[in-house]
Simulated assay, not measured.
Amino acid sequence: MTLTWLTALAGGVLIGLSATLLLWLNGRVAGVSGILNGVVFPKPGDLSWRVAFLAGLIAAGGLYMAVVPGAPLPRTDFPRAGLIVAGVLVGFGTRMGNGCTSGHGVCGLGRLSMRSLVAVATFMATAIATTFVLRHLWS
C-alpha cells in the first residue's frame, strides 16, 4: 500500500514551514522566481540567502530521489528546445504576473492577498485549459 497522501502532506508541511521561517527569520517571501531573479541580478549583500535557499531546494529534491524507494524520477524524453522555450515562457509569465506559483500560491494566499487569489485562479484555469487541450484535443 502506498502512502501517497502521507508524502504529499509531509511535503506540504515542509513547504509551508520553510516559507513561514523565511518570512519570520529573514523578512522575505518565498517566491522562487523572485529569489532566482535576485541571483541572476544580485544586489549588494542580498545574494547568500538566495543561493542557500535555491541550493536547499535542489538538494532536498535530490535527497528525496536518492533516499525514498520508488520516488518519481525526472522525465528525460522531452525535447531540449521545447524545455528552453517553456522555461522562457514561464519566466515571462511570472514577470507579467508579478510572481510565481510559490510566491502567490503558498505565501500570498497564506497572507490573504486578493491579488494572489486572482493570480492563483488564473494559474489554475490556464493549467487546466492547457492540459485539456494537450491531452484531449491536440493528440
Rank of each mutant, 00 (worst) to 15 (best):
T4D: 14
W5F: 10
T7F: 11
A8G: 02
A8F: 08
G11Q: 09
G11R: 06
G12R: 04
I15G: 00
L17K: 03
L17Y: 10
S18M: 09
A19M: 12
A19F: 14
T20Q: 15
T20K: 12
L21H: 03
L23Y: 15
L23P: 02
L25Y: 15
L25G: 15
L25I: 14
N26E: 13
N26I: 04
R28A: 01
R28I: 00
V29M: 13
A30L: 15
G31Y: 12
V32C: 06
S33W: 06
G34D: 05
G34C: 12
N37S: 14
G38Q: 06
V39C: 13
V40S: 13
V40A: 15
F41Q: 15
F41Y: 15
F41L: 15
P42E: 12
K43R: 13
P44Q: 14
G45A: 08
D46F: 12
D46M: 13
L47F: 12
W49N: 11
W49S: 13
V51A: 05
A52D: 11
A52E: 07
F53M: 10
F53I: 00
F53T: 07
F53H: 06
L54E: 03
L54M: 12
L54C: 05
L54T: 00
A55L: 13
L57V: 03
L57E: 00
L57Y: 00
A60N: 06
A60Q: 06
A60D: 07
A60Y: 04
L63T: 13
L63S: 07
L63Q: 03
M65Q: 08
M65C: 02
A66T: 00
A66S: 04
P69D: 15
P69F: 12
G70D: 04
P72R: 11
L73K: 14
P74I: 08
R75G: 06
R75W: 10
D77M: 07
F78R: 10
P79N: 11
A81G: 08
G82L: 02
L83T: 07
I84D: 03
V85T: 03
V85P: 02
V85N: 02
A86N: 04
G87W: 02
G87S: 00
V88N: 01
V88L: 11
L89W: 01
F92M: 09
G93E: 10
T94R: 09
R95C: 04
R95E: 10
R95K: 10
M96Q: 15
G97S: 05
G97P: 04
N98Y: 08
G99M: 04
G99A: 06
C100Y: 00
T101N: 08
S102M: 07
H104G: 11
V106K: 04
G108M: 06
L109V: 09
G110H: 14
R111D: 12
S113R: 02
R115D: 07
R115Y: 03
S116E: 01
S116T: 00
L117G: 04
V118Q: 09
A119M: 03
A121F: 15
A121Q: 13
F123K: 01
F123A: 01
F123Q: 02
A127K: 00
A127D: 05
I128F: 05
A129D: 09
T131F: 13
T131V: 06
F132T: 08
F132H: 11
V133P: 05
L134A: 09
L134G: 08
H136C: 02
S139V: 13
S139F: 13
